[in-house]
Computed example of a mutant assay.
Amino acid sequence: MQFPATGRRVLVTGASRGLGRAVARAFAANGDRVAVHCHERAEEARATLASLDGTGHVLVRGDLADPAGALEVADAAHTAFGDDGGGVDVLVNNAAVNLRHPLAETPYEEWVETWRRHVSVNLLATAHLSHLVARRMIDRGTGGRIVNIGSRGAFRGEPDHPAYGATKAAVHALGQSLAVSLAPHGIAVASVAPGFFATERVAPRLDGPEGAAILAQSPFGRVAAPEEIAGAVLWLASPAAEWASGTVLDLNGASYLRT
C-alpha cells in the first residue's frame, strides 16, 4: 500500500500553541486530518483546532508523563480516526518541558524532580507513544511516519537546562534506533533539531535584555518562525522523505554547525 501524500491522519502532541500549533496547521493546510493533543491548555488547544483548514480534526487530552495517559491519548486518536482501515498515519512527538535548573543554583530535591519531569515527558512519552502508534501501523500493514522534535541543545549543550539537552539527545538516538527497526514495516522515523524559534513562551526573552544576543546567534540575525520548523516536519512526514529516515535535521540558521 502506497503511503499517501494527503488525507492522512496525524497526531500532534503538545499542539495547544507554539510549534505544535504551527505543525498542526501545516498538516491541515496539506489536506490531512489532525488530532490536536493537549494536557492542561484545553482552551488554547480548542483555539488551535478552530484555526485549522479543512474538517475532521479532533481534540485529544491526556498527561503524557503518565504511561496510562499516553495510552489514553493514542487510543483516543485511533478511535477518533477509526480503526477499520483508519488509525494514525503520522505521529509528531512535539510535547516537551523545558525548565531552567542550572546545577550551581538548584537545590538537590528540585534537581531530582526536574530531571524526573524532563525524562517522563520529553523522552519516555516519546518512546511510549511511538510504540503505541507504530504497533498499530504494523498491524494494519500501511506503513507510516514518526517525526520527533529534538533540539540544537542536544549538541551545543544547555548549561541552564541540562535535563532538556540530555533528553533531546536521547530523543535523537531513540529516533535513529526506531528508524532501523521499523523500516521493514514501511515506517520512516526522523527528527528535527531546531535552534531558537519565536513562540509565546520565549517572547519575554526575545524582548528582554538578552534578545539581541539571541538574534546574533545566527548569521541571519534572527530566530526562526515556528512555520519554518513545521514545514520541515511536514516534508519529513511525506512519501518523498522515506529515504531521510534516521536523519536528525538541523534547523538553526547556521547558529551551530555540527562536524
Rank of each mutant, 00 (worst) to 15 (best):
M1R: 12
A5W: 10
G7C: 14
V10N: 00
V10K: 02
V12M: 01
R17E: 04
L19A: 01
R21A: 10
R21G: 07
V23K: 01
V23L: 00
A26Y: 02
A29V: 07
A29C: 08
G31E: 15
R33P: 03
R33H: 15
V36I: 07
H37S: 02
H37L: 04
E40G: 12
A45H: 07
L49E: 03
L52K: 06
L52R: 03
L52D: 06
D53Q: 03
L64R: 06
D66M: 11
A68V: 15
L71D: 14
D75F: 10
A77N: 10
H78P: 09
H78F: 11
G82P: 14
D83A: 13
D84N: 14
G86Q: 11
N93W: 02
N93Y: 05
A95Y: 00
V97N: 00
V97W: 01
N98K: 11
L99W: 12
R100I: 02
H101D: 03
H101A: 00
P102M: 04
E105W: 08
P107Q: 07
W111Q: 10
E113I: 04
T114N: 04
W115K: 03
W115I: 13
R116P: 08
N122F: 00
N122M: 06
A125K: 03
T126Q: 00
A134R: 13
I138L: 14
D139F: 07
R140F: 09
G143E: 12
G144L: 09
I146T: 06
I149E: 06
F155Y: 15
R156G: 09
R156P: 08
P159C: 01
D160G: 00
D160W: 02
A173K: 09
S177E: 15
S177A: 14
V180S: 11
F196N: 03
A198Q: 07
T199N: 02
R201Q: 13
A203Y: 09
R205S: 07
L206T: 08
S218C: 14
E228Q: 11
W235M: 12
L236C: 10
A237L: 15
P239M: 10
G246L: 15
T247R: 12
L249M: 10
D250T: 03
N252I: 00
G253Q: 09
Y256L: 05
L257P: 08
T259V: 15
